[in-house]
């Protein structure tokens, strides 16, 4: 029985192969290759771009700066007035007052704000990283 089926299969194979398959349009191959070259160019562009963009580094620097200020102002226990006492020697009282007010306020920035900034930076990093990865893999 199997032998018979094998012979039948061989006959059918030969028969079907004498027919022709459907073909796409004449410029199909060129169109595919054009798309392939476009994909290749896009992929190379993605590869040449740094993984971490300028935006990420700016946000990270700002965050690091802010953390440093918060640490200096709160962690050391020095008040704004003491830290900037040297400014009083300069005869620019308005500027000094402005600076003092600014840094006093900055020193009082709650940690939650720093946390939000940290979270934003991490999210930005992840977004950038994942979008690069998904493009390469898609």
């Amino acid at each position: 029985m199997n032998m018979k089926r094998e012979i039948e299969d061989k006959k059918l194979k030969a028969f079907l192969k004498s027919g022709q398959l459907e073909s796409p349009g004449p410029d199909f191959s060129n169109r595919v290759m054009n798309r392939v070259f476009e994909e290749k160019a896009a992929l190379e562009q993605v590869k040449s771009e740094p993984l971490l963009g300028k935006g990420f580094w700016i946000i990270l620097s700002l965050f690091a700066g802010l953390m440093a200020v918060v640490f200096v102002m709160q962690g050391s226990g020095i008040s704004g007035g003491q830290t900037f006492s040297f400014l009083k020697e300069v005869n620019t009282s308005a500027v000094t007052t402005g600076y003092q007010n600014f840094f006093e306020k900055l020193g009082a920035v709650p940690l939650s704000v720093a946390g939000i900034l940290l979270g934003t930076s991490v999210l930005l990093f992840l977004e950038k990283y994942l979008s690069n990865r998904s493009y390469v893999l898609s």
């Binding site: 398959l21 073909s23 796409p24 191959s29 290759m33």
Partner: peptide, 20 residues
């Protein structure tokens, strides 16, 4: 990358037939 065109030429009919 040019060599991919050989693959396309070789398999385009069967790939197209399945899709059709």
């Amino acid at each position: 990358t040019n060599y991919f065109s050989y693959v396309v030429e070789k398999y385009q009919d069967i790939v197209f037939s399945i899709a059709l």
